[in-house]
Design a protein around this nucleic acid. Structure first.
Ligand SMILES: [Mn+2]
Ligand SMILES: [Mn+2]
Ligand SMILES: [Zn+2]
Ligand SMILES: [Zn+2]
Lengths: 140, 140
DNA sequence: TTGTTATATGATAATAATTCTCCTTTGAAA
DNA sequence: TTTCAAAGGAGAATTATTATCATATAACAA
């Protein structure tokens, strides 16, 4: 993902392009590990030593409400962020804070078909997310 | 759910039975709406005007780590609690903080069968929770 | 029943993630 | 270039939760 592409993503949403926004969006894409605000700060401090914590949160909020990133909730008191915008699920490690993406179109279709016929009384489904909890058999 | 039953649940886990623990567990069961710590406090203040906020959190922690209640995470910065211990999913309202239980054994079996045959590489599944986001067609 | 003791509670301070406020800076359009 | 709405920086404030520690009490034994 080149900086030009990131700039374009931001422009497409009608947002001003700033060095902070580029750095933060780039960090989330590159880290690719559902980083926290603090992870992002640590990552970009090398090139942006003066960025304020509040700016990171404000940028994250702007990116999320413009659908350039997603918020990923965790068991713990800290929000994490995701630049993968296509619909996908998450694998949560039951022993650590590791979260990995799980993309599975066969599963999505299965669920869609299931709820299409069965439905949920008095409820209109907009989205379904799976939290798959377990243990990773590989390190990282 | 009678108080005697609640006492027994607490005793079974080898915990001391205290008026605070009874009141808090009873509140979560009766409210049946995935209450926050504050909701619980409000509910029990009538009969326990002197209970400390910290006690509520400590009791919630003790109940959760002894598997008498579950923590339910939300998009927002507040934990919610659930006395329904059987495996179930949640319906999240996309417009409000309403969360309702969704129990569906047919779905559980479908998912179990699906992952049993397909599996996830390098990952050992322990539990699967669906977050079903959408709109309730009824008020409350 | 009473005494003992580990555990729980209450009061309050501390923490940690996030948000707010307000002033300054800047991106982008003209 | 100038203009100015929008964005950033600094630090205070907020809010949910946790920690600390002195006091109270549930459970058990004598
Ligand atoms: Mn918080
Ligand atoms: Mn918090
Ligand atoms: Zn993801
Ligand atoms: Zn529930």
């Amino acid at each position: 993902m080149k900086v030009t592409e990131i700039r374009n993503k931001i422009i497409e949403k009608g947002l001003k392009v700033t060095p902070q926004r580029i750095a933060i969006l780039e960090a989330i894409i590159k880290l690719n590990n559902h980083p926290t605000a603090e992870n992002i700060l640590d990552y970009i401090r090398d090139n942006h030593p003066n960025i304020a914590t509040a700016t990171v949160y404000k940028v994250l909020d702007a990116l999320a409400s413009n659908k350039l990133i997603k918020k990923v909730k965790t068991e713990r008191d800290v929000m994490r962020y995701d630049a993968v915008m296509e619909s996908h699920h998450h694998l949560y490690c039951s022993e650590s804070d590791r979260i990995e993406d799980y993309k599975d179109n066969e599963l999505n279709e299965l669920l869609e078909k299931y709820f299409e016929t069965k439905g949920i009384p008095d409820f209109q489904i907009e989205d379904i997310k799976l939290q798959i909890i377990g243990k990773f058999m590989t390190n990282r």
